[in-house]
Structure formats: structure tokens, C-alpha cells
């Protein structure tokens, strides 16, 4: 059977139903691998289809991808450990976020996942002490630009990014999960209060907290770049923990609509659901990728890009931000 690959729905299907790869011919595999690389899901795909029948050349490529993901996992856990050592003397909870949290807690969402920077959440009142401790332990500012720095400190939900001078790895220190400019203001105190302690005294958000953060990040904060991977995270968290009490928790953070939408889209992409209304636009956006790994649907992408800035900032400030960026570019 030969299928025509139109967009990344074929990748979503392969992740959700690994047996669906049985119908792929050589060109289908080539397209699937290119898409999976472009969406940073190649390691996840490799874990999902491990052990199934496939051409030897494909198996070799996916074996490499699994190795690479394992290496990434080790590096991410090491960054978390180095942050733990640097912050051991600071008396505050340190909550791992996103990919690092998934692998530190051994969750299915972390299997094969590519992991970028280290993201941590700390109480807002501890942020200065945390910053000082990290600077003392070898982290340095990435951006010397005073506009960016003032912008971050005033409006964003994190310190300006820091990079470690020896290991060349970034850390993002958050004190809440959405920018202070966003219209929705989740309650970081509740998220930290509900967080779960790991063996090494670092923490992760509670399962519902992780789901709410993933949904907030996807729909309220981002332009849906990397959306497929985020949605896969949500799918894995739901499968592993269920959704008990999720709607009530989401309501407490003002994120009911985002969480509900993320569950519907996950069901449309990875389950039996059918997207309707605006949800179909979201599905079009997160699957806008062709068999050469190229981004497609430029109009849909642009619409979501503008929307992401619109959501993060009041209009006057948006104009000021884009103007400053424009003058510097």
C-alpha cells in the first residue's frame, strides 16, 4: 500500500499507532523520517516503533536517534544536577519543568524526547538569591543588550537566559508559567505548593500541573512552533495520569479553555476524535510540514505568529516591542 504524504498527520499517526508504519514504502519512510527530524520527534518515533518490522536502513537510523535521545537525556539530567548543587544552599523549592522534568521523573512523555534548555520554576521572592547563586556557580548572561534585559525583567516570566561558561548550556529561571504581560495569570504559588519531590530533592509539577503548564505554553504563550511535540507530551501525560481534577485545577489558573482545547486537539491528532471549528485551524497549523521536512501553510503559520505576540502583550506594547526589534534588525 502506498500512501500520499500530505502533512505531518502521518507522523502523528505513527506515534499514536506504531503498527501503522507497516504500510510505508521507502519514500514513505524517507518522508516520515524527515518530518520527525523537523518536528524534533525522531527520538520519540524511534522509541515508539522499536521492535517492529522495518527496513534495515530505517532501523539503523532509528537506532541512532535512540542513542542521541539517550545522550540528550543524560546531558539534561546532568544540567539539573549541576543546578541542584549550585542552589543547594538556597532555601527554596526548585521545580524542574518540561522535558527535564519528564525524564527526571521517568515519565513516558520523556521517552526519546529531545530536550533543550534547562527550565526551572522557583518562588518569585527567591529569584534574586537564585540568580546570585547561579552566577556564582559559573552561569553568565547570554544577552548584554540592555533593552532585552529590561524587557525580560519587567515583562517576562523568567530571568534573562543564563548560559554556563564551561558547559555551554542554557538555563531559564521562571517565577511563573506565563509572561506577566499575558492576560491570563496562573497562580505559581499553587503550582509550587502542589509540586512533587523527587529523590534528589528537586521537584516536578504535579501531573495536573504539568498538563496545565503544557497547555498554557502551547496556546497562551507560543506561536505553536514545536506544537506537535508539545501535544505529544500532553497525550502521554493524560495516558499516564488521567485527568482527575484537571478541569477544576485548570479553572483555578484561568486556563480552562486552553486545557480543554489541548485535550480536544490531542484526541483529534492521536485518538479517534474529529476536530471541529477553530480546532481545525490548530490541527492545520501543527501538521504543516511536508515530506521534505519543509514548513508549509505560510499563511496559517503567520497568523499564529502574530497571535502569539498579541496574546502576550497589550497592543501598545506590542507595537513598541516590534518597533524596537525592527530598528535593531
Amino acid at each position: 500500500m502506498v500512501r500520499v504524504v500530505k502533512d505531518a498527520r502521518v507522523l502523528a499517526r505513527a506515534l499514536a499507532d506504531p503498527a501503522s508504519i507497516a504500510g510505508l514504502d521507502a519514500d514513505g519512510w524517507t518522508a516520515l523520517l524527515a518530518m520527525a527530524r523537523a518536528e524534533q520527534l525522531i527520538g520519540t518515533l524511534a522509541m515508539r516503533v522499536d521492535g517492529l518490522a522495518m527496513p534495515a536502513a530505517v532501523k539503523a537510523i532509528l537506532d541512532d536517534a535512540r542513542e542521541a535521545a539517550e545522550h540528550g537525556r543524560r546531558a539534561a539530567l546532568w544540567e539539573a544536577e549541576m543546578a541542584r548543587r549550585a542552589l543547594a544552599a538556597v532555601d527554596c523549592p526548585v521545580v524542574l519543568l518540561k522535558g527535564t522534568a519528564f525524564v527526571a521523573a521517568g515519565l513516558s512523555a520523556g521517552q526519546g524526547r529531545s530536550i533543550g534548555d534547562l527550565d526551572i520554576l522557583v518562588p518569585r521572592e527567591s529569584i534574586d538569591t537564585v540568580e546570585a547563586a547561579l552566577l556564582a556557580a559559573g552561569w553568565e548572561w547570554v544577552k548584554p543588550d540592555p533593552y532585552d534585559d529590561a524587557y525580560y525583567r519587567r515583562w517576562m516570566h523568567e530571568l534573562p537566559p543564563l548560559i554556563h561558561r564551561e558547559r555551554d548550556r542554557m538555563i531559564d529561571v521562571h517565577h511563573t508559567i506565563l509572561p506577566l504581560t499575558a492576560r491570563i495569570t496562573p497562580d505559581p504559588v499553587a503550582l509550587i505548593d502542589d509540586s512533587v519531590t523527587l529523590e534528589n530533592a528537586l521537584r516536578t509539577l504535579s501531573p495536573n500541573g504539568m498538563l496545565i503548564h503544557a497547555a498554557a505554553h502551547l496556546f497562551a504563550d507560543g506561536d505553536l512552533a514545536g506544537g506537535l511535540r508539545n501535544l505529544w507530551d500532553i497525550r502521554c501525560l493524560v495516558e499516564e495520569f488521567g485527568t482527575d481534577g484537571l478541569a477544576a485545577d485548570a479553572g483555578r489558573h484561568g486556563l480552562s479553555a486552553q486545557v480543554a482545547r489541548s485535550l480536544r486537539i490531542v484526541d483529534a491528532l492521536f485518538g479517534a476524535g474529529e476536530a471541529t471549528g477553530i480546532d481545525r485551524l490548530y490541527v492545520r497549523r501543527v501538521t504543516a510540514r511536508d515530506g521534505w521536512g519543509r514548513p508549509t501553510r505560510p499563511v496559517t503559520r503567520l497568523a499564529f505568529y502574530i497571535r502569539s505576540h498579541w496574546l502576550r502583550m497589550p497592543p501598545a506594547m506590542l507595537a513598541r516591542h516590534l518597533w524596537t526589534k525592527f530598528r535593531k534588525a
Binding site: 523520517l33 527496513p55 530505517v58 521536512g293
Partner: peptide, 14 residues
């Protein structure tokens, strides 16, 4: 050609 017809890497000139 690539083994099994599946390339290790895709290159784009665009």
C-alpha cells in the same frame, strides 16, 4: 543509491 531506498539524510537547495 541509498540502502533500502531510504536516505540517512535529506538536503534541500531552495
Amino acid at each position: 543509491g541509498p540502502r533500502d531506498g531510504v536516505a540517512d539524510f535529506t538536503v534541500r537547495l531552495f
